[in-house]
Simulated scan of single mutants.
Amino acid sequence: MSGGGYDVVVDVDEEGDLGHTDLQEDLEFHSSNFTADHAQSARKSPGGTGLPLPATAGSGSQKRLLWTLSFYAQFFDVDTNAVLSRCWAALYPRANFLDVLEGNPDLYGPFWIATTVVFILFLGGTISQYLAREVGARFAYDFTLLSGAAGLIYGYTVVIPTVLFLVLKYFGSESANLLECCALYGYSNLIWIPVALISWSNLTLLNWVFVGIGFGWSVAFLLRNLYPVLSATDRKTSKALLIIVVCLHAGLAITIKWLFFAHQSLVKADDPVPAAGGDAATKLFF
């Protein structure tokens, strides 16, 4: 009866004799608020603990609009331990990186990794230019290296996975996820940090070796994790996409080499050192 919204009240005489109870006279039906009370208690205490709901309990049902901060905040909802474990998984890939993400890809790690790569490329390129300057010449900082590094790294990390995601959707892939693609490319940039730190010397062959190691390490990481997604398309398309991914990543590595570490060569012919009062056009200003 309680399920129908009624409570049963039985009127018992002093002797406790139920045998002569008149159901018509002794049974009274009252409206019950059991259902409402139960619903209210469920809202206040999940699991019947009597504790109030957490502040984020209702966030799943709230709409996040594209122009609100809460929409973008959800992509940075990750703690330091998770970011460090993902960085380690990117440098030493033992398991599929998409499994490491556990369905919660973030943009926090990719953003700071890309930012670190930008500044280290600028630093390494500046040191490379300084070492390659003519003896006795003054050195001028080239801040176009900073803007070039930002455009290259940020552009590659955002544009390439976005285009790849759209292409996969066009070919009917249901497993493609934009955030996972961005996270995958973002964490793959991690290898360029040690490469940029050691590629500033003016030994051409050594720099090519360092950049080649960075390319091989990062492209292997990308192919290992992108292959299950790309293979969801037909065989011809997946093979073409794999080749395009490798070529674009090779283009990134070559661009990094020539833009930031091309001022080298201890084997080049010695240039004459300009005289103290020589042509002003040959001088570099600090």
Rank of each mutant, 00 (worst) to 15 (best):
F139Q: 01
A140S: 15
Q129A: 14
I127K: 09
Y130R: 14
E180G: 15
L168E: 13
Y141E: 04
I113W: 01
F171E: 01
V158G: 02
E134P: 11
G172V: 04
D142M: 07
K169M: 08
I160N: 07
N177L: 07
L121C: 05
V118I: 14
L168Y: 10
T126M: 00
Y154E: 05
W112Q: 10
G125K: 02
L164A: 09
G124T: 04
L168T: 11
F119A: 13
T115P: 02
C181D: 10
V167P: 00
P161E: 00
E174R: 14
V167F: 00
I113C: 02
E134A: 13
T157N: 11
A137T: 08
F139S: 03
T162W: 12
V163G: 02
S128V: 06
S173W: 01
Y154H: 09
S175C: 02
I160S: 06
I153W: 03
Y154F: 15
A149W: 01
F139N: 05
S173K: 01
T116M: 13
L145S: 05
Y141A: 10
L179M: 15
L166N: 12
V159D: 01
V167G: 02
V118G: 04
L179G: 07
F111Q: 03
V118P: 01
A114H: 10
D142C: 05
T126A: 00
V167R: 02
L146V: 10
L164N: 12
I127N: 05
F119I: 14
R133P: 04
F122Q: 04
Y156H: 15
T115H: 09
L164E: 13
L166M: 13
I127P: 04
F111V: 15
L178T: 00
P161L: 00
A132E: 15
G136Q: 03
G136M: 05
Y141T: 11
L121F: 03
F111N: 07
L146Q: 03
Y156K: 12
L178K: 06
S175L: 11
L178H: 07
A150H: 10
W112G: 00
G151A: 09
L179Q: 10
K169P: 03
L121Q: 08
I120R: 05
F165H: 11
V118A: 04
N177P: 01
Y170C: 11
A176Y: 01
G151V: 10
P161Y: 03
V135W: 03
P161R: 04
K169A: 10
